[in-house]
């Protein structure tokens, strides 16, 4: 995917910048962005190490077993043949819970751990498996109980009722997750038939 998108982004940007006279802006952005990545990665590094560590602890206690029982029906519907692998199962459950609780900083590291666990069962290592795609789609749907960042922005801009967006966000995000999950399920079936 990025083998196509990435060069298109760059070539189009440079051509358009030359035509529209934005080339100086574009030149500056190259240096600003590389600096941003380092900044961002350092934050990510700290967060990922911390949450990977905490998760490893959680994986070694019985806490996850309780959560698994609650989420089992949903997980079994969305993912295939996952209950056989305990580690996979647990990582996916923690990723979903971190998302729902709005622990954005924790959700990504946990999701990446789940991806690594899923890779062990993937027959073709350079291609995403069905379960991996489902996990990614669920993560892009941004399920969360309290959209804290947006509420904080609304509050800082002097809203009379900053939290009024919670209910609309729930509906929109649940619809998005359902559509994403169903589209993925359908495409998995369709894809298999073609092969």
């Amino acid at each position: 995917m990025l083998n196509i998108l990435w060069p298109i982004f760059i070539i189009i940007s440079i051509i358009y910048a030359v035509i529209s006279g934005n080339i100086e802006n574009l030149n500056n952005s190259i240096f600003v962005e590389t600096e941003n990545v380092v900044q961002f990665s350092l934050t990510l590094l700290g967060m990922t190490c911390l949450w990977s560590g905490i998760m490893e602890v959680a994986l070694n206690t019985r806490i996850i077993d309780c959560l698994s029982k609650i989420l089992k029906p949903v997980i079994n519907f969305l993912f295939k043949d996952i209950e056989k692998d305990d580690e996979c199962n647990k990582n996916i459950i923690m990723n979903i819970i971190a998302n729902i609780l709005g622990l954005g900083n924790a959700a990504t590291p946990l999701g990446l751990k789940a991806m690594n666990a899923l890779q062990k069962h993937n027959k073709e290592k350079s291609t995403l498996s069905d379960n991996m795609i489902m996990l990614i789609v669920l993560n892009t749907a941004s399920l969360q109980v309290i959209p804290t960042t947006v509420i904080a922005i609304r509050n800082s801009l002097g809203s009379k009722n900053p939290t009024m967006i919670i209910f609309p966000v729930w509906i929109a995000t649940v619809c998005a997750a359902i559509v994403g999950g169903l589209v993925t399920k359908i495409l998995i079936k369709f894809n298999r038939r073609k092969l």
């Binding site: 990446l112 350079s126 991996m132 795609i133 997750a177 994403g180």
Partner: peptide, 22 residues
């Protein structure tokens, strides 16, 4: 980020499905 963490190059229909959700 998710795909590169397992070094997967072929991402199949994941972009399409995610954009449908968006």
């Amino acid at each position: 980020v998710y795909s590169s963490s397992v070094k997967a190059k072929n991402t199949r229909f994941v972009l399409f499905a995610s954009l449908m959700a968006d």
